[in-house]
Nucleic acid binder design. Structure first.
Lengths: 158, 158
DNA sequence: CTATTTCGTCAACCACGTTGACTATCGTAC
DNA sequence: GTACGATAGTCAACGTGGTTGACGAAATAG
């Protein structure tokens, strides 16, 4: 299983995509930990990104991430507990609880983006810029429908 | 978040790799369900693959998958419950419980491989065979170290 | 004013992973 | 032949990230 089986070419591709993803994510978080964000877990970056600069609510966050509002609420709880998000009352609607990125969360987000840029540059150094662009273009073609879906029902606990 | 930000090229790559992986896995399991394997969950295929034709033990399976023997044992429990794996005593060592793929498990595995081959062929039809090969080669270069690691510590429940 | 919808939360549950502790068995060293 | 260390499997407790169902409080529509 550690090496591709030439008689089964199809099996290699999903594993390679997962391995590529994991490589980037692992490198990102190793570097984030070095830069003062050891608490930031892989999912958190995507959640912070989805909350955005304007803030949002748990229900809306769930819609953006493709998960239930309850799951979104629990994730927000964890991010609040580690200081990356904060909640505030909505003066215009007492049912809503606004979720906002804290300064620390914004710092983590900014560093994540910078680190991803550096990692992409590393890939471009090794493979050549046009190969990386080709990979992005091809994946966009084949996977556009799943681009924004972060939930993985049935995959990681469904 | 639904479209890549040109100012942040690095952010797109991991999301695209994840989306590509998910696309293949989702398509695989949609087709597997159609072919009589609705119970087969995404992780199961990798586990069956890791068990292999010769069978193994829970501890060895854990080592192959990079997870603890306890986690491997629980996963085997689930696969046994749905009929894809079976346990047997090792006549030569009463401590060991051999784990083997059942005929149904072998059928699922064979179909998975065939479906992956067809999906790869679809990608090759759309992108051109040399682009798919290039993607595989490039991912092998960048992600070889994570090729066989299926565990995602800190990612999906760590 | 009442009926409906929406937001957030609580509770129970599942999948998948962890660590620690424990039993039973094997292999070896004496 | 017995004592001992290493190994296989399991149990228990827990953490993370999901699910569905139920419910109260607040907004909105009639």
């Amino acid at each position: 299983m550690a090496t591709p089986d030439p008689a089964r070419p199809g099996f290699a591709l999903p594993l390679l995509l997962l391995a590529g993803f994991r490589t980037l994510i692992d490198d990102l978080h190793a570097e984030l930990a070095r830069e003062g964000h050891p608490e930031l877990r892989p999912l958190h970056g995507f959640v912070l990104q989805a909350v955005g600069a304007d803030g949002t609510t748990a229900t809306e966050l769930g819609q953006r991430l493709g998960i239930s509002k309850q799951a979104a609420g629990k994730t927000v709880d964890r991010l609040v507990a580690v200081g990356y998000l904060e909640r505030a009352d909505d003066p215009a609607d007492a049912r809503r609880r606004l979720v906002r990125v804290t300064p620390r969360g914004a710092d983590g987000l900014r560093r994540s983006a910078e680190i991803f840029d550096r990692l992409r540059a590393q890939w471009a150094d090794t493979l050549g810029p046009q190969r990386v662009t080709a990979m992005e273009d091809d994946l966009t073609t084949m996977a556009a429908a799943n681009w924004f879906r972060l939930d993985v029902p049935g995959w990681f606990g469904g």
